[in-house]
Design a binder for these strands. Structure first.
Length: 206
DNA sequence: TATAGGATAGCT
DNA sequence: GCTATCCTATAA
């Protein structure tokens, strides 16, 4: 039985809102990864970006294709894709069934170092998941997780903000910064990137 | 079938 | 600034 003050798992209903609403709300929530061997990795979400149906930078902007089809489905699924032939990126599918939109998870503050990270390498914990590609490396996320549901007993799920985090944000709303997205050639002026202002785990400072 | 290019990251 | 590396979208 769970303690009353334990963080609650995020369900599909909560994600069934426009991605521009969900993206800022996901800052401070926790992404939980359960590996095939049962080990759990957890990271605080510190940076997100929103993509919407009428957004030229959205993979689903033109039409439904095999790659982007999960974005057209109901909220609560993962949309994972390969970029530059090297890295994977993790998105949370948002909004109503039939409305293709998603939130890109760009950076996490990991709670503990993944076991496969070489301690000799002297990489800082707060940089291990500082970027969408690094985040997927750190949590062993690849195309095999595309279209899986974000709920417990799956490989990935989400937890709401802790009471403490919510209180701090209420006291200091400027801890959440909104600005333009990174690395795009289209829709560069849309202010749909959010990050935890004082976090050293954000992919770039801005 | 062919081919251009990308929601990145690390090195120069 | 340069580019690895491969999947995908789009054109032919």
């Amino acid at each position: 039985m769970k303690a009353l003050d334990a963080p609650q798992d995020i369900n599909a209903d909560w994600l069934s809102r426009p991605s521009t609403q969900v993206a800022p709300d996901l800052i401070g929530c926790v992404l939980v990864r359960q590996l095939p061997d049962g080990k759990i990795l957890r990271g605080l979400i510190v940076e997100t970006e929103a993509y919407t149906p009428d957004d030229p930078a959205c993979h689903a902007y033109r039409r439904r294709t095999p790659r982007n089809s999960v974005m057209f489905g109901p909220a609560g699924a993962c949309y994972v894709y390969l970029i530059y032939g090297i890295y994977h990126c993790l998105n949370v599918v948002t909004d109503l069934d039939g409305i293709p939109s998603a939130v890109l998870i760009r950076a996490l503050q990991l709670e503990t170092s993944p076991p496969w990270i070489d301690p000799q390498k002297n990489v800082k914990l707060h940089r291990l998941a500082a970027g969408p590609g690094k985040l997927c490396l750190a949590l062993k996320i690849d195309l095999s997780l595309n279209a899986t549901l974000l709920q417990p007993v799956q490989p990935l799920w989400l937890e709401h903000r802790s009471e403490q985090f919510q209180q701090q944000l209420n006291e200091s709303p400027s801890n959440l910064t909104q600005t333009t997205r990174i690395g795009l050639t289209q829709g560069v002026d849309l202010p749909w990137r959010w990050y935890l202002t004082d976090s050293s785990a954000v992919s770039k400072r801005g």
